[in-house]
Amino acid sequence: MAVFSDCDSTGINIKLSGHVTLVYGKLLDKNTYIGLGGNQGDMITLSPNYQFHGKAFPMNRKKTAYKIFRGFYKPKGYLIKEEDKLNANDEYATLKDANAKLKQKTQDTSKGESSR
């Protein structure tokens, strides 16, 4: 899991709220991680918008919301296995390629696990 805090554009004024995403993979061209989300408009989504450089970054085009990377975390007591680690199978040229592996663009989660 990657954890981000809400902040202002400077990254100095960190707020108590934030965001968590599951790390799904990595984009080769941007050297950027892909986050797997499930609460964006009742959809499962993949997003390359997460930046892991430790500086504040905008989460929308209007630059009204900023986040800052806080770290990678795992549940207490969970032992990381080799298959948990990212490898060449988790690297994608584009977000479209990553979505193809999921065999869907997004999934409606508002009615449980059934997809559209």
Results as ranks from 00 to 15, higher is better:
residue 1 M to N: 07
residue 1 M to K: 10
residue 2 A to I: 01
residue 3 V to Y: 08
residue 3 V to N: 03
residue 5 S to A: 11
residue 5 S to G: 13
residue 5 S to D: 04
residue 5 S to C: 13
residue 7 C to A: 07
residue 7 C to F: 06
residue 7 C to P: 04
residue 7 C to N: 04
residue 8 D to R: 00
residue 8 D to T: 08
residue 9 S to A: 11
residue 11 G to D: 03
residue 11 G to A: 07
residue 12 I to M: 10
residue 12 I to F: 13
residue 13 N to C: 06
residue 13 N to R: 07
residue 13 N to V: 01
residue 14 I to Y: 06
residue 14 I to P: 12
residue 14 I to W: 05
residue 14 I to R: 09
residue 15 K to R: 10
residue 15 K to D: 15
residue 15 K to P: 13
residue 16 L to T: 15
residue 17 S to N: 12
residue 17 S to I: 11
residue 18 G to F: 04
residue 19 H to P: 01
residue 20 V to I: 08
residue 20 V to A: 05
residue 21 T to V: 03
residue 21 T to K: 00
residue 24 Y to R: 10
residue 24 Y to A: 07
residue 24 Y to P: 04
residue 25 G to Y: 02
residue 25 G to I: 05
residue 25 G to F: 09
residue 26 K to H: 11
residue 29 D to G: 14
residue 29 D to L: 07
residue 30 K to M: 13
residue 31 N to V: 00
residue 31 N to K: 05
residue 31 N to H: 05
residue 32 T to N: 03
residue 32 T to Q: 08
residue 35 G to E: 02
residue 36 L to K: 03
residue 36 L to G: 01
residue 37 G to Q: 05
residue 38 G to E: 00
residue 38 G to N: 01
residue 38 G to V: 04
residue 39 N to W: 00
residue 39 N to T: 01
residue 39 N to E: 01
residue 40 Q to L: 06
residue 40 Q to D: 03
residue 41 G to C: 03
residue 41 G to V: 00
residue 44 I to Y: 13
residue 46 L to R: 00
residue 46 L to A: 01
residue 47 S to T: 05
residue 48 P to H: 02
residue 50 Y to A: 04
residue 50 Y to C: 03
residue 51 Q to M: 11
residue 51 Q to L: 13
residue 52 F to D: 05
residue 53 H to T: 08
residue 55 K to S: 15
residue 56 A to I: 01
residue 57 F to M: 08
residue 57 F to L: 02
residue 58 P to E: 07
residue 59 M to W: 00
residue 59 M to E: 06
residue 59 M to L: 11
residue 60 N to W: 03
residue 60 N to D: 04
residue 62 K to Q: 09
residue 63 K to G: 05
residue 64 T to Y: 10
residue 65 A to M: 09
residue 66 Y to K: 09
residue 67 K to I: 11
residue 67 K to M: 12
residue 67 K to Y: 14
residue 68 I to M: 09
residue 68 I to F: 01
residue 69 F to T: 02
residue 70 R to A: 03
residue 70 R to E: 07
residue 70 R to K: 10
residue 70 R to V: 01
residue 73 Y to A: 09
residue 73 Y to M: 12
residue 73 Y to V: 11
residue 74 K to H: 10
residue 75 P to Q: 09
residue 78 Y to G: 06
residue 79 L to G: 14
residue 80 I to E: 11
residue 81 K to G: 05
residue 81 K to L: 12
residue 82 E to S: 12
residue 84 D to W: 08
residue 84 D to F: 08
residue 85 K to N: 14
residue 85 K to R: 11
residue 86 L to R: 06
residue 87 N to A: 09
residue 88 A to E: 11
residue 90 D to L: 02
residue 91 E to C: 08
residue 93 A to S: 13
residue 94 T to N: 09
residue 94 T to M: 02
residue 95 L to R: 06
residue 96 K to W: 09
residue 97 D to H: 07
residue 97 D to W: 02
residue 97 D to C: 14
residue 98 A to H: 04
residue 98 A to T: 07
residue 98 A to P: 01
residue 99 N to W: 10
residue 99 N to D: 04
residue 100 A to L: 15
residue 100 A to K: 15
residue 101 K to R: 12
residue 102 L to T: 06
residue 102 L to R: 07
residue 104 Q to P: 10
residue 105 K to D: 10
residue 105 K to M: 10
residue 105 K to I: 13
residue 107 Q to R: 15
residue 109 T to I: 11
residue 109 T to N: 07
residue 111 K to H: 08
residue 112 G to W: 14
residue 113 E to G: 14
residue 113 E to I: 10
residue 114 S to Q: 14
residue 114 S to Y: 06
residue 114 S to L: 12
residue 114 S to W: 12
residue 114 S to G: 11
residue 116 R to Q: 15
